[in-house]
């Protein structure tokens, strides 16, 4: 028996985790075409920074999260300058370099901080409905996911950086000829993507166990969302998170967690096969075709 409200909450949970984890990767992949296989570890860095800020520095939770975002953004800038910059245009090479980086980061954190961290408490309380109850933080997380998407949309449409970034995606050569400093755009983009990954880690720290190897699951989730989403960053991540979150919630509710994970991955493969450019690639093509056939 499927309880509607339960399903809604579980869906929100799935959706928010997927969107938060993926949006950073979507920006980096969408704008720079770089596959960052260390993305999961950036999320891990954000989570660890939050715990560090909360337990070691004694900061309140929000300040710890802000610290985490800053730390991860700075870290991203360093990585971009030292490593990523040298692999532009070489997609597979960027994959291998970031794969190496992910090994260094996850193992390095293990050496640095040991096998697991003290936990960060979950803020807010519970909300009860009938025989059931949920953590209010879950709802907050979903709101945060939507806010992030809105924020990214604003970033790309209303700021200088956003305009330059979109120009660079569309046609790098022309953008450069028109005076856009594309190197700067790339650095800033990578920093923003990293910051968003750090934010995801920070927001997740209160509800999951923070371990050096936590990055792996989030990497797969992020990739799945980005690939299914397609070229449009905001719309793609949002739609894809929505679609995959729904699939996950329904299947998990009826068949259990393992089935949910497997079906999610299978759906990804099917989408890749039938919609090469993801959901928004498909909608773009449909829209183009309609425009041509219309007026």
């Amino acid at each position: 028996m499927v309880n509607g409200l339960n399903l809604a909450f579980q869906y929100l949970q799935g959706f928010s985790v997927l969107v938060l984890a993926a949006v950073g990767l979507a920006i980096i992949f969408g704008i720079m075409g770089v596959i960052n296989l260390a993305h999961g570890e950036f999320i891990m860095v954000g989570a660890y920074a939050t715990v560090f800020g909360y337990h070691d520095l004694g900061l309140p939770l929000v300040a710890s999260m802000a610290l985490a975002v800053g730390v991860t953004a700075a870290f991203g800038m360093v990585v971009e300058r030292l490593l990523i910059k040298r692999t532009y245009g070489r997609l597979f090479d960027s994959m291998v370099v970031t794969l190496g980086l992910s090994l260094v980061l996850s193992q390095g954190m293990l050496v640095l901080r040991g096998t697991s961290e003290p936990s960060v408490p979950t803020p807010f309380g519970t909300i009860s409905y009938g025989a059931f109850s949920q953590s209010v933080y879950r709802v907050a997380l979903a709101l945060a996911a939507v806010a992030v998407l809105v924020g990214v949309y604003w970033l790309f449409t209303r700021t200088e950086y956003g305009i330059r970034a979109r120009a660079t995606i569309q046609d790098e050569g022309t953008a450069r000829a028109l005076g856009v400093r594309t190197e700067r755009v790339y650095s800033t983009t990578f920093a923003i993507g990293s910051a968003l990954a750090g934010l995801a880690g920070a927001l997740l720290a209160p509800i999951v166990s923070v371990t050096p190897t936590m990055g792996g699951t989030y990497l797969v989730k992020s990739f799945v969302v980005v690939v299914v989403g397609g070229p449009s960053v905001v719309l793609g991540t949002g739609l894809s998170g929505g679609l995959l979150g729904a699939v996950d919630a329904v299947v998990t509710n009826v068949y259990g967690q393992t089935a949910g994970s497997i079906v999610l991955l299978v759906v990804t493969v099917v989408v890749i096969r039938f919609f090469q450019d993801g959901v928004t690639g498909f909608t773009d093509r449909v829209r183009d075709r309609l425009a041509r056939e219309g007026t």
Binding site: N6, Q13, N253, G256, Q257, S261
Partner: peptide
């Protein structure tokens, strides 16, 4: 039964 990779337990 919950897969070893799962870390979300709402359902």
């Amino acid at each position: 039964f919950i897969s070893l990779d799962t870390s979300q337990f709402s359902s």
